[in-house]
Design a protein around this nucleic acid. Structure first.
Lengths: 148, 148
DNA sequence: AGTACTATTGTTATTTTTCACAATAAGGAC
DNA sequence: GTCCTTATTGTGAAAAATAACAATAGTACT
């Protein structure tokens, strides 16, 4: 079995003068293998098992770098901290701002909008992470009954 | 001239047991008057002129609260810090992840998508802030010329 | 293999953001 | 106005995130 796609992608970055350091590879691998959201400190912890004295600073820097390069996605969870996930997973999130319940939204749902915005602005849009906020059905019910 | 709409909104929250403190009013007023993005520390600075010994902690707490109540919007700028803006301004952002250039997107552009998601998930979506990331035309050109 | 270049790392210090808890003050009832 | 309840504040301390800079180590070249 060869390297996962993300690592291949990382290799490609060498052509642009970027380097493939063990720290960078480890961070990417952690996100790949998890396939879920991870906070910087969680990533630091897991990647630290492969890279003995990995620094938090380095983790932050690389998450930034990998996000810029499109290899990882930034997910704005709730109204708080930022978490990251491998770009292999193309979906978005919808959060209830009352109870925190979340729903995945497939990227296909956004495709028409993306096309529209691209045509209109000339930007090439990342398929990266978008987070929507709202009120879930249960909480909406509670609000209504309270008001009536 | 009566109070701005946001303050009226805040008054309405009293019915739910929340309180209208001078700190809260000041923070909301700062965002209203600015009409633009402000970081928590900028907000603290400006609101601090009205409320002598206003704490950073209080600013953070109230921004959180006001965002939850839908009175202010959270805007995720670039891949970094969170900034806030008054909910009076209903637009979204598209950022170039290379140069940071940004474009406003009117909420109307998102309306069809919002309807679609609401129908499908049963959520009631906030009109609050959504940020898209992409590559602006200039940067896209640079990338292409580099590759060829 | 050895060298040079420079992207990237670790270090140290600083800033930003959150937390826990006692003190305060907003709002309702009298 | 006074009293009561408790949401909200400030305080002090911790955790998370960023910045500057010298040391390290990928990468391309020979």
């Amino acid at each position: 079995m060869s390297e996962p796609a993300s690592i291949q992608h990382l290799l490609a970055l060498r052509a642009q003068g970027f380097r493939m350091t063990p720290q960078r590879v480890a961070i990417l691998r952690v996100l790949d293998e998890c396939g879920c959201h991870l906070s910087p400190s969680e990533i630091h912890q897991r990647a630290g098992e492969m890279i003995p004295n990995l620094t938090e600073t380095t983790v932050y820097r690389n998450l930034d770098f990998l996000a810029q390069q499109g290899l990882v996605l930034i997910a704005h969870v709730g109204s708080g901290r930022i978490v990251y996930e491998s770009a292999a997973h193309h979906h978005h999130h919808l959060y209830c701002r009352h109870c925190g319940f979340s729903v995945d939204i497939n990227h296909e749902e956004l495709a028409p909008l993306y096309k529209h915005i691209q045509d209109k602005t000339g930007f090439i849009l990342d398929t990266s992470h978008v987070t929507f906020f709202g009120v879930c059905p249960q909480c909406a019910n509670k609000e209504n009954t309270k008001e009536n």
